[in-house]
Amino acid sequence: MPRRVSDVMTPAPQALPLDATLYEAARVMRDEGIGDVLVTYAGQLCGMVTDRDIVVRAVAESRDTSLTPLGEVCTAELCTLHPEDDTETAARLMIERSVRRLPVVDGGRRPVGIVSIGDLAVADGQRGPLPEISKAPPNN
C-alpha cells in the first residue's frame, strides 16, 4: 500500500474563512457534493466543519445557520498530513483519531488537499485499512 498522500488525495479542497456562516458552508457542501469544508484564517488551515457538525453542533442547538460563523462550531484541533506522507500513515492516523478524513497541508499550513477513507479504499483496491477504519467509533 505505501503510496504518497499526494497520489490519492483530492486536490484543491473547498475552504471558507473562519467568519463565513454555517449556511455558506452548507451551500458549498450541497453544490459540490461533499461532506466537509476546511476553515481558514489568512489562508492557513485553522479548522474543519462537516455536515454532521452543522447538524449536531448547530441545528440541534437551534443556532441560526445564517448568522453562526464557522469558528463557533468547527473542529479546530486537527490532525493533518503533508503531500509526501505515505498512505499507511494516513490510515494509521484515521484509526488512532477515529476520523474519516484528513486535511493535507503544505509546510505553512496552507490546505492543498484532503484524504478520505474512500480515497484510501480506491488506492488500495478491495483490501487495506477500510474495514478497520470503518469500525472505529465516530468522533464527536
Rank of each mutant, 00 (worst) to 15 (best):
P103S: 07
G125Y: 13
A121G: 06
T80N: 06
C79H: 09
S62C: 07
D106T: 11
L120S: 01
I54V: 10
G107Q: 09
T75D: 02
G113F: 12
R101A: 11
R100H: 10
S134W: 07
G108F: 11
E84R: 06
A76H: 13
S116R: 03
A90H: 04
T50M: 03
R92N: 03
P131D: 06
D86H: 04
G113E: 08
A123M: 06
A123V: 04
V73N: 07
V99G: 04
V55K: 01
I114P: 05
S98T: 00
T89P: 01
D51N: 04
A90R: 00
D85S: 07
P83F: 07
V122H: 09
T89G: 00
L70N: 06
R127P: 01
E84I: 02
T65F: 13
R52H: 03
V104F: 10
D53N: 01
I133N: 08
V115W: 12
P111M: 05
P111Y: 15
V115K: 09
A60W: 08
S134K: 08
G118T: 10
A76W: 14
I133M: 07
G108D: 15
R109C: 14
T65L: 15
R101S: 06
A60G: 09
A121R: 13
P69F: 15
I95P: 00
S116A: 12
R101T: 08
V49G: 03
P131G: 02
T68M: 10
E96V: 01
L78Y: 08
V105A: 10
T75K: 05
L70Y: 14
S116M: 08
S66H: 14
A123W: 09
P83E: 08
D85K: 00
I54Y: 03
A91R: 00
